[in-house]
């Protein structure tokens, strides 16, 4: 057997991928070839060293799960609706009627969908279209409120971050000392109105 073939068999051996016959062939070659014997020993040790490495160190930071859960789009609210509609088909019909009635009211909200930012310290905030960016390395003193836009945080916010009718992206470098709150104004409002109407119906 050529040494080149032997080396290839050595790797197959380490991958646990050799037939008995091939194994015997490899063994025969190793017995007769000191160079390959040396190579084999080294490969086997490399393999063992790699396997000996710890498998789950280091672990991710504790608040990572929380950060992930904050980034994913919130669908729960809509899903509650869907379940509710399935359980109460009649009420759903009534609600649809109500929604049509309320439609004009929502339009009032939507007409006013210009980006609005509130805060005491807006000097370092970057605005790009509908997106409000707090760049890495910058610090915003106090609270920040973003209406009708997307907030992308890479730096520090030393206060609460509230987003009304928009979304939040928090990078790993971000640090927000206060609360992060996302408010879907139109949806909350309709929900409030509808639950009010139905509680009235129930008590009549």
């Amino acid at each position: 057997m050529e040494c080149k073939t032997a080396v290839s068999l050595m790797h197959d051996y380490l991958d646990d991928d050799l037939s008995k016959e091939q194994r015997l062939m490899l063994k025969a070659h190793l017995l007769s070839c000191p160079n390959c014997r040396m190579d084999f020993k080294e490969l086997e040790q490399t393999d063992m060293m790699l396997y000996s490495l710890p498998h789950n160190i280091p672990s991710a930071s504790y608040e990572l799960t929380e950060r992930i859960m904050n980034t994913i789009p919130q669908r729960k609210k809509q899903k509650v609706w869907v379940k509710w509609m399935k359980i109460h088909p009649a009420a759903t019909a009534a609600a649809v009627f109500l929604i049509i009635m309320l439609f004009s009211a929502i339009n009032i909200f939507n007409q006013d969908n210009q980006l609005v930012i509130h805060g005491n310290d807006l000097d370092e905030v970057v605005i790009n279209g509908n997106t409000v960016i707090i760049p890495e390395g910058t610090t915003i003193a106090g609270d920040l409120t973003v209406e009708n836009g997307k907030a992308e945080v890479f730096g520090d916010v030393q206060g609460n971050l509230t987003v009304i009718d928009g979304s939040v992206y928090k990078a790993s470098t971000a640090h927000i000392s206060g609360e992060v709150k996302s408010v879907d104004r139109a949806l909350d409002w309709i929900w409030y109105k509808i639950s009010n109407v139905f509680s009235e119906v129930v008590y009549r």
């Binding site: 160190i57 672990s59 990572l64 859960m69 899903k79």
Partner: peptide
């Protein structure tokens, strides 16, 4: 189906492996 708790469990199961 929108169950956030279930998704959080998936995250817990895999985040360390993916992080590593």
């Amino acid at each position: 189906n929108g169950d956030q708790q279930a998704f959080a469990e998936i995250v817990e199961l895999y985040k360390d492996k993916i992080y590593h």
